Simulated assay, not measured.
Amino acid sequence: MLDEQHYLCQYCKYDGIVKQGKTVDHIVPIEASPNEKADISNLAVICHSCHTLKTIWEQQTYGTGKARELKHITAIRNIQTINRLMKKEHD
């Protein structure tokens, strides 16, 4: 996955930013969609700063994380939409 996406953060890309990413992230978190854990279409390269924002957004949106109650919502699979939402909530 890293090679296929040239080690570039797929979230920064939608802001017109070219930034190296070293982490492969599940677009829809495993907790919210366990059946997509091994689905390569559910993976994207992400940089550290976007990963931090996305983790916070996932906790608020999906209820993921330790000692949280998982929310049953429709999964968002579009990276551009997730990017906009996670950065909007951070502002």
Rank of each mutant, 00 (worst) to 15 (best):
E4Q: 05
I56F: 14
W57G: 03
Y11H: 10
C50M: 02
T64H: 06
R84H: 14
E36Q: 15
L70C: 03
A67E: 13
M1F: 14
K37Q: 14
I76D: 04
R77C: 00
A32F: 07
S33F: 13
V28G: 05
A44Q: 06
T23L: 02
P34N: 10
Q20L: 08
A75G: 01
E31R: 08
N83Y: 13
L43A: 10
Q20T: 08
I56H: 13
E69Q: 14
N42Q: 05
S49E: 12
Q59H: 06
P34D: 10
E69L: 11
A75Y: 00
A38Y: 11
T64I: 13
I82D: 07
A38F: 08
V18M: 09
E4A: 04
C47E: 04
R84M: 12
C47S: 11
G16C: 14
T52K: 15
N78W: 03
C50V: 02
S49Y: 06
Q60P: 00
L8M: 10
E31A: 15
H90E: 05
R77Q: 06
R84D: 12
C9F: 01
H48S: 14
E58K: 00
V45P: 03
I76K: 10
H48W: 08
L70M: 01
Y14D: 13
K66A: 07
G16R: 14
K37G: 03
V18A: 06
A38C: 08
Q59T: 08
V45M: 04
R68L: 05
L53P: 07
H51M: 10
D15A: 12
Y14E: 12
C9P: 02
Y62K: 05
Y7M: 07
T74I: 11
I73H: 02
Q80L: 11
L70D: 04
Q20C: 03
I79E: 00
C50S: 01
L85A: 12
M86S: 11
N35W: 11
V28P: 05
S49I: 02
S41K: 13
T81Y: 11
K37L: 08
N83K: 15
T61E: 09
S49W: 08
D3Q: 13
C9I: 01
N35I: 11
N83E: 15
T74S: 12
K87S: 09
L70T: 03
Y62D: 02
Y11K: 09
K13T: 05
D3E: 15
Q5S: 07
I27A: 11
Q80A: 15
V24Q: 01
N35C: 09
I76T: 09
N78L: 04
